[in-house]
Amino acid sequence: MHIVVCIKQVPDSAQIRVHPVTNTIMRQGVPTIINPYDLFALEEALRLRDRFGGAVTVLTMGPPSAEDSLRKALTFGADRAVLLTDRFFAGSDTLATSFALATAITRIGETWGAPDIVFTGKQTIDGDTAQVGPGIAKRLGLIQVTYVAKVAELDPEGRTITLERRAEGGTQVLKSQLPCLIAMLEGTNEVRRGTMADALSAARAEIVKWNAKDAGVEDLGKCGLKGSPTIVKRVFAPAARSEKAKVIEAPEGGSLADALIADVFARQPHLEADLTALARGF
Protein backbone atom coordinates (compact mmCIF):
# COMPACT_ATOMS: atom_id res chain seq x y z
CA MET A 1 0.00 0.00 0.00
CA HIS A 2 1.36 3.41 -0.93
CA ILE A 3 -0.05 6.35 1.00
CA VAL A 4 0.68 10.02 0.35
CA VAL A 5 0.11 12.50 3.16
CA CYS A 6 -0.05 16.22 2.42
CA ILE A 7 1.26 18.30 5.27
CA LYS A 8 1.74 22.02 5.45
CA GLN A 9 4.22 24.04 7.48
CA VAL A 10 2.37 26.91 9.08
CA PRO A 11 3.24 29.76 11.41
CA ASP A 12 2.11 28.99 14.93
CA SER A 13 -0.89 31.25 14.78
CA ALA A 14 -1.05 31.68 18.53
CA GLN A 15 2.14 33.67 18.22
CA ILE A 16 1.39 35.88 15.29
CA ARG A 17 1.64 39.62 15.71
CA VAL A 18 0.46 42.32 13.46
CA HIS A 19 2.34 45.55 12.83
CA PRO A 20 0.08 48.23 14.27
CA VAL A 21 0.77 50.68 11.47
CA THR A 22 1.32 48.69 8.31
CA ASN A 23 -0.94 45.76 9.17
CA THR A 24 1.59 43.31 7.95
CA ILE A 25 2.49 40.17 9.78
CA MET A 26 5.54 40.57 11.97
CA ARG A 27 7.26 37.27 11.40
CA GLN A 28 10.19 37.76 13.67
CA GLY A 29 10.34 35.06 16.24
CA VAL A 30 7.18 33.35 15.06
CA PRO A 31 7.91 29.64 15.09
CA THR A 32 6.57 27.35 12.41
CA ILE A 33 4.90 24.04 13.08
CA ILE A 34 3.33 21.22 11.12
CA ASN A 35 -0.30 22.17 10.65
CA PRO A 36 -1.72 20.41 13.72
CA TYR A 37 -4.62 18.93 11.79
CA ASP A 38 -2.25 17.19 9.41
CA LEU A 39 -0.78 15.11 12.22
CA PHE A 40 -4.03 13.17 12.48
CA ALA A 41 -3.78 12.36 8.78
CA LEU A 42 -0.16 11.31 9.17
CA GLU A 43 -0.86 9.02 12.11
CA GLU A 44 -3.78 7.37 10.34
CA ALA A 45 -1.55 6.77 7.33
CA LEU A 46 1.19 5.29 9.50
CA ARG A 47 -1.29 2.95 11.16
CA LEU A 48 -2.56 1.70 7.81
CA ARG A 49 1.00 1.16 6.63
CA ASP A 50 1.84 -0.75 9.80
CA ARG A 51 -1.20 -2.94 9.24
CA PHE A 52 -1.03 -3.53 5.50
CA GLY A 53 2.62 -2.86 4.69
CA GLY A 54 3.87 -0.44 2.09
CA ALA A 55 5.16 3.08 2.47
CA VAL A 56 4.07 6.53 3.53
CA THR A 57 5.27 9.48 1.47
CA VAL A 58 4.83 12.94 2.96
CA LEU A 59 4.49 15.87 0.63
CA THR A 60 4.54 19.56 1.23
CA MET A 61 4.57 22.63 -0.92
CA GLY A 62 6.32 25.56 0.66
CA PRO A 63 9.54 27.49 1.08
CA PRO A 64 12.87 25.63 1.44
CA SER A 65 12.57 25.94 5.23
CA ALA A 66 9.52 23.66 5.10
CA GLU A 67 12.13 20.90 5.06
CA ASP A 68 12.03 21.05 8.87
CA SER A 69 8.43 19.90 8.93
CA LEU A 70 9.14 17.08 6.53
CA ARG A 71 12.05 15.88 8.61
CA LYS A 72 9.83 15.92 11.61
CA ALA A 73 7.27 13.82 9.76
CA LEU A 74 10.04 11.34 9.05
CA THR A 75 10.87 11.24 12.75
CA PHE A 76 7.30 10.15 13.38
CA GLY A 77 7.97 7.25 11.04
CA ALA A 78 7.10 8.30 7.49
CA ASP A 79 9.20 6.58 4.84
CA ARG A 80 10.05 9.39 2.49
CA ALA A 81 9.47 13.08 2.06
CA VAL A 82 9.03 15.33 -0.92
CA LEU A 83 9.38 19.10 -0.79
CA LEU A 84 7.77 20.98 -3.62
CA THR A 85 9.41 24.34 -3.74
CA ASP A 86 9.67 26.93 -6.47
CA ARG A 87 9.16 30.65 -6.70
CA PHE A 88 6.52 29.96 -9.35
CA PHE A 89 4.32 28.59 -6.60
CA ALA A 90 4.43 31.78 -4.56
CA GLY A 91 1.09 33.43 -4.00
CA SER A 92 -0.95 30.32 -4.77
CA ASP A 93 -4.55 30.26 -3.67
CA THR A 94 -6.33 26.97 -3.02
CA LEU A 95 -6.99 26.26 -6.68
CA ALA A 96 -3.35 26.78 -7.64
CA THR A 97 -2.14 24.90 -4.56
CA SER A 98 -4.28 21.91 -5.37
CA PHE A 99 -3.00 21.98 -8.93
CA ALA A 100 0.63 21.93 -7.83
CA LEU A 101 0.08 19.23 -5.22
CA ALA A 102 -1.97 17.07 -7.59
CA THR A 103 0.77 17.31 -10.23
CA ALA A 104 3.39 16.34 -7.67
CA ILE A 105 1.29 13.41 -6.47
CA THR A 106 1.09 12.18 -10.03
CA ARG A 107 4.86 12.37 -10.25
CA ILE A 108 5.18 10.61 -6.89
CA GLY A 109 2.96 7.87 -8.33
CA GLU A 110 5.18 7.53 -11.39
CA THR A 111 8.29 7.38 -9.24
CA TRP A 112 7.29 5.13 -6.34
CA GLY A 113 3.99 3.59 -7.40
CA ALA A 114 0.51 5.04 -7.64
CA PRO A 115 -0.91 5.98 -4.24
CA ASP A 116 -3.83 3.98 -2.89
CA ILE A 117 -4.83 6.77 -0.53
CA VAL A 118 -4.00 10.45 -0.37
CA PHE A 119 -4.48 11.94 3.07
CA THR A 120 -4.89 15.59 3.97
CA GLY A 121 -5.79 17.30 7.21
CA LYS A 122 -9.24 18.73 7.78
CA GLN A 123 -7.94 22.23 7.18
CA THR A 124 -4.91 24.40 7.84
CA ILE A 125 -4.68 26.89 10.66
CA ASP A 126 -3.38 29.66 8.42
CA GLY A 127 -5.31 29.16 5.20
CA ASP A 128 -8.17 27.65 7.14
CA THR A 129 -10.20 26.86 4.05
CA ALA A 130 -10.54 23.07 3.96
CA GLN A 131 -10.51 23.46 0.19
CA VAL A 132 -7.15 22.06 -0.81
CA GLY A 133 -8.11 18.44 -0.06
CA PRO A 134 -11.23 18.48 -2.24
CA GLY A 135 -9.24 20.40 -4.83
CA ILE A 136 -6.56 17.71 -5.05
CA ALA A 137 -9.21 14.99 -5.26
CA LYS A 138 -10.96 16.67 -8.14
CA ARG A 139 -7.74 17.33 -10.01
CA LEU A 140 -6.69 13.69 -9.67
CA GLY A 141 -10.17 12.33 -10.26
CA LEU A 142 -10.15 10.61 -6.86
CA ILE A 143 -13.16 9.89 -4.71
CA GLN A 144 -13.13 12.46 -1.93
CA VAL A 145 -14.18 11.84 1.64
CA THR A 146 -13.72 14.71 4.09
CA TYR A 147 -14.21 14.95 7.86
CA VAL A 148 -13.29 11.30 8.28
CA ALA A 149 -13.32 10.22 11.91
CA LYS A 150 -12.30 6.63 11.35
CA VAL A 151 -11.10 4.21 8.75
CA ALA A 152 -13.36 1.34 9.76
CA GLU A 153 -12.36 -1.27 7.21
CA LEU A 154 -9.99 -1.57 4.35
CA ASP A 155 -9.74 -4.42 1.89
CA PRO A 156 -6.58 -4.04 -0.16
CA GLU A 157 -7.48 -6.90 -2.52
CA GLY A 158 -11.09 -5.91 -3.09
CA ARG A 159 -9.91 -2.25 -3.22
CA THR A 160 -12.74 -1.13 -0.95
CA ILE A 161 -12.69 1.09 2.10
CA THR A 162 -15.30 1.79 4.76
CA LEU A 163 -15.14 5.16 6.46
CA GLU A 164 -16.94 6.97 9.21
CA ARG A 165 -17.53 10.52 8.18
CA ARG A 166 -18.62 13.32 10.47
CA ALA A 167 -21.78 15.00 9.18
CA GLU A 168 -24.23 17.48 10.66
CA GLY A 169 -25.99 15.76 13.52
CA GLY A 170 -24.31 12.40 13.22
CA THR A 171 -21.89 10.06 11.52
CA GLN A 172 -22.20 8.74 8.00
CA VAL A 173 -20.81 5.27 7.45
CA LEU A 174 -19.85 4.95 3.84
CA LYS A 175 -18.18 2.47 1.63
CA SER A 176 -16.04 3.57 -1.24
CA GLN A 177 -13.18 2.45 -3.40
CA LEU A 178 -9.45 2.85 -3.60
CA PRO A 179 -7.78 5.01 -4.66
CA CYS A 180 -9.37 7.85 -2.73
CA LEU A 181 -8.58 11.05 -0.90
CA ILE A 182 -9.33 11.27 2.79
CA ALA A 183 -9.36 14.51 4.78
CA MET A 184 -8.93 13.41 8.37
CA LEU A 185 -10.84 14.95 11.26
CA GLU A 186 -8.98 16.18 14.32
CA GLY A 187 -8.91 14.34 17.63
CA THR A 188 -9.19 10.97 15.93
CA ASN A 189 -5.85 9.61 17.03
CA GLU A 190 -2.63 10.75 18.60
CA VAL A 191 0.51 11.02 16.59
CA ARG A 192 3.17 8.57 17.69
CA ARG A 193 6.55 9.44 19.04
CA GLY A 194 8.80 7.51 16.69
CA THR A 195 11.58 5.25 17.97
CA MET A 196 15.24 6.15 18.28
CA ALA A 197 15.80 4.26 15.03
CA ASP A 198 13.13 6.39 13.29
CA ALA A 199 14.74 9.50 14.66
CA LEU A 200 18.19 8.48 13.48
CA SER A 201 17.04 7.61 10.00
CA ALA A 202 15.05 10.85 9.79
CA ALA A 203 18.16 12.79 10.74
CA ARG A 204 20.03 11.05 7.94
CA ALA A 205 17.31 11.10 5.30
CA GLU A 206 17.65 12.96 2.04
CA ILE A 207 14.56 15.03 1.44
CA VAL A 208 13.48 14.91 -2.17
CA LYS A 209 13.25 18.47 -3.50
CA TRP A 210 11.30 19.22 -6.61
CA ASN A 211 10.77 22.47 -8.43
CA ALA A 212 7.84 22.96 -10.76
CA LYS A 213 9.64 21.31 -13.65
CA ASP A 214 10.79 18.30 -11.61
CA ALA A 215 7.24 17.79 -10.43
CA GLY A 216 6.05 17.68 -14.00
CA VAL A 217 4.26 21.03 -14.16
CA GLU A 218 3.87 21.90 -17.81
CA ASP A 219 1.69 24.97 -17.60
CA LEU A 220 3.20 27.49 -15.21
CA GLY A 221 0.13 29.64 -15.81
CA LYS A 222 -1.75 27.32 -13.49
CA CYS A 223 0.66 27.98 -10.64
CA GLY A 224 1.15 30.71 -8.11
CA LEU A 225 -0.48 34.07 -8.54
CA LYS A 226 -1.19 33.50 -12.21
CA GLY A 227 -3.08 30.32 -11.52
CA SER A 228 -5.11 31.82 -8.69
CA PRO A 229 -8.57 33.10 -9.50
CA THR A 230 -8.91 34.80 -6.14
CA ILE A 231 -7.26 38.11 -5.48
CA VAL A 232 -6.56 39.53 -2.05
CA LYS A 233 -7.28 43.21 -2.44
CA ARG A 234 -7.16 44.48 1.06
CA VAL A 235 -5.76 43.34 4.38
CA PHE A 236 -6.78 45.19 7.49
CA ALA A 237 -7.05 44.87 11.23
CA PRO A 238 -10.45 44.20 12.77
CA ALA A 239 -11.98 47.40 14.08
CA ALA A 240 -11.34 47.71 17.76
CA ARG A 241 -14.32 48.32 19.95
CA SER A 242 -13.94 51.85 21.16
CA GLU A 243 -14.84 51.22 24.77
CA LYS A 244 -13.48 48.73 27.18
CA ALA A 245 -15.85 46.62 29.24
CA LYS A 246 -17.76 48.45 31.94
CA VAL A 247 -16.63 46.99 35.23
CA ILE A 248 -19.50 46.33 37.59
CA GLU A 249 -18.84 46.67 41.28
CA ALA A 250 -20.87 45.63 44.24
CA PRO A 251 -22.93 48.52 45.62
CA GLU A 252 -22.41 49.44 49.24
CA GLY A 253 -23.77 46.49 51.20
CA GLY A 254 -25.33 44.98 48.07
CA SER A 255 -24.50 41.89 46.09
CA LEU A 256 -22.25 41.90 43.06
CA ALA A 257 -24.32 39.20 41.42
CA ASP A 258 -27.51 41.26 41.69
CA ALA A 259 -25.74 44.33 40.38
CA LEU A 260 -24.53 42.39 37.36
CA ILE A 261 -27.95 40.96 36.66
CA ALA A 262 -29.55 44.38 36.92
CA ASP A 263 -27.06 45.78 34.42
CA VAL A 264 -27.52 42.89 32.01
CA PHE A 265 -31.29 43.17 31.99
CA ALA A 266 -31.14 46.93 31.70
CA ARG A 267 -29.17 46.44 28.49
CA GLN A 268 -31.31 43.55 27.25
CA PRO A 269 -34.84 44.42 28.42
CA HIS A 270 -36.60 41.63 26.53
CA LEU A 271 -34.23 38.97 27.70
CA GLU A 272 -35.57 38.99 31.22
CA ALA A 273 -39.12 38.29 30.10
CA ASP A 274 -37.98 35.56 27.75
CA LEU A 275 -35.82 33.86 30.34
CA THR A 276 -38.60 34.07 32.86
CA ALA A 277 -40.97 32.44 30.42
CA LEU A 278 -38.39 29.77 29.82
CA ALA A 279 -37.84 29.27 33.54
CA ARG A 280 -41.57 28.87 34.02
CA GLY A 281 -41.52 26.14 31.40
CA PHE A 282 -39.23 24.06 33.59
Binding site: D93, T129, Q131, G135, R139, A167, E168
Partner: peptide, 23 residues
Protein backbone atom coordinates in the same frame (compact mmCIF):
# COMPACT_ATOMS: atom_id res chain seq x y z
CA UNK B 1 -19.41 26.55 5.66
CA UNK B 2 -20.71 23.37 7.26
CA UNK B 3 -19.17 19.93 6.85
CA UNK B 4 -21.45 19.41 3.86
CA UNK B 5 -21.02 22.89 2.39
CA UNK B 6 -17.25 22.92 2.65
CA UNK B 7 -16.99 19.44 1.17
CA UNK B 8 -19.18 20.43 -1.75
CA UNK B 9 -17.85 23.94 -2.35
CA UNK B 10 -14.21 22.84 -2.69
CA UNK B 11 -15.09 20.17 -5.21
CA UNK B 12 -17.42 22.40 -7.21
CA UNK B 13 -14.98 25.30 -7.36
CA UNK B 14 -12.16 23.06 -8.55
CA UNK B 15 -14.38 21.45 -11.16
CA UNK B 16 -15.45 24.86 -12.43
CA UNK B 17 -11.90 26.21 -12.03
CA UNK B 18 -13.12 29.27 -10.24
CA UNK B 19 -12.24 31.06 -7.02
CA UNK B 20 -13.77 30.24 -3.66
CA UNK B 21 -13.51 32.28 -0.48
CA UNK B 22 -13.95 30.18 2.63
CA UNK B 23 -15.57 31.27 5.86
Amino acid sequence: ATTLGRDLAGAVATTLLTGLTAD
